[in-house]
Amino acid sequence: MIKIAICDDEEKAIALDEEVVKRSLQQCGIGYEITAYTRSSNLIDDIADDHFFYDLILLDIEMPGISGMEIPEKIRAFLPNVKIIFVTSHIEYAIDAYELSVFRYVPKNNLDQKLAAAVTDAAKWIELEAGQEYTIQTSSRMEKIPFKDIYYIERDGKNASIISRAGTSKVRKSLQQVYEELNAPEFLFIDRGYIVNIIQVMKISGGTAVLKNGERLPISRSHLSEVKQQINRFWGAHI
C-alpha cells in the first residue's frame, strides 16, 4: 500500500491528478491511499506535527503561502525517502532536482502521459526500496538492517562496515562474503574497498559516486565503465 499526498490550491487540479494516479496504479496492480490538500501549510503541519507518513507527494509549485518549491526542504527531516513529483503549468521554472530531491517534473498540459509515467515509475521505485533486510547475528546480538537504508559497505581491516541511516554496523566478514549474502542486484562493487547501494546513488561525477546522504565514494578507474553500465541496466530493469 503506497501512501500518497496531492497538494494543489485548485480542487479541479487535485481531481485531475487523483484520476491519473488511480488509473495508473490500478493498471499496475499497486494498492494506494490518497490524501488531498488545498493548503501547503496543512500538508506540512500533518507531516511535522502529527507525523503523517507519505511515500509519494504530488505538488503544485505556485500556491498561496508556502510554495511547492519550499516544501521539500521543510519535510525532508521527517520524510527523508519521500518521492516528490512537481505538477505545474509553470514550465519556465528551472528545477534543481538534486538539491530538492525531486523525483520528476510534470507539466499540467500533459498529465495523461507524463504524470501517469512518473507515478508508475515512482511506485515501482518505492516498492523496490521496501525490499529485504541484512541480518548481523553474533553470540551477543542480532541486528537487522533494511536494504533500502544501506548507503554502502566498506572494508575495515578484517571487518566490513555497513553504513546506513542508523549509523555504522560492523560485521567480521570480508566484503565479498557480505556481497554474496546480500545477493541483491542493487549492490555492486565500485572499488575493491567499497560496495554501494545503487538506490542511494544520486549521480556519478567523474570518478566519484555521490550518495543521497552527501557522501562521495571513489570509483576505481578499472570499475568506472562497468559501474555506469550496471547502474543503467539496473534502472532499465526496475523502472
Rank of each mutant, 00 (worst) to 15 (best):
I2G: 00
K3H: 11
I6P: 00
I6N: 01
C7N: 08
D8I: 05
E11I: 14
L16S: 13
E19T: 14
K22S: 02
S24A: 15
Q26C: 09
Q27I: 12
Q27W: 08
G29F: 14
A36F: 05
A36T: 15
N42F: 11
N42P: 00
I44W: 06
D50I: 04
H51P: 01
H51I: 03
F52G: 00
Y54E: 02
I57L: 06
D60K: 03
D60E: 11
I61Y: 10
P64W: 03
G65Q: 15
S67R: 05
I71K: 03
I71D: 01
P72N: 07
E73P: 03
K74C: 02
K74Y: 05
A77T: 13
L79N: 00
I85H: 01
I85T: 05
F86Y: 15
I91H: 02
I91L: 07
D96T: 08
Y98E: 08
S101Q: 13
F103A: 08
F103N: 05
Y105G: 04
P107A: 09
N110F: 07
L111Q: 04
D112C: 02
Q113K: 12
A117P: 04
A118T: 04
T120R: 09
T120F: 00
A123G: 03
K124N: 11
E127N: 12
A130D: 10
G131T: 13
Y134E: 07
T135R: 13
Q137K: 15
T138Y: 05
S140Y: 12
R141L: 10
R141N: 09
K148E: 08
D149K: 10
I150G: 02
I150Y: 03
R155I: 08
K158T: 07
S164L: 03
S164T: 07
R165N: 06
R165L: 12
T168Y: 02
S169F: 11
K170A: 12
Q177T: 14
Y179I: 04
E186T: 07
E186S: 13
I190S: 01
D191G: 03
R192D: 12
R192Y: 13
R192V: 10
Y194L: 06
I198C: 04
I198D: 01
V201E: 08
I204C: 02
G207W: 00
G207T: 06
T208W: 04
V210T: 05
L211C: 05
G214T: 10
E215C: 09
R216Q: 14
S225V: 14
S225Q: 15
K228M: 11
Q229F: 01
Q230C: 09
I231H: 04
N232V: 04
F234N: 08
H238V: 15
I239L: 13
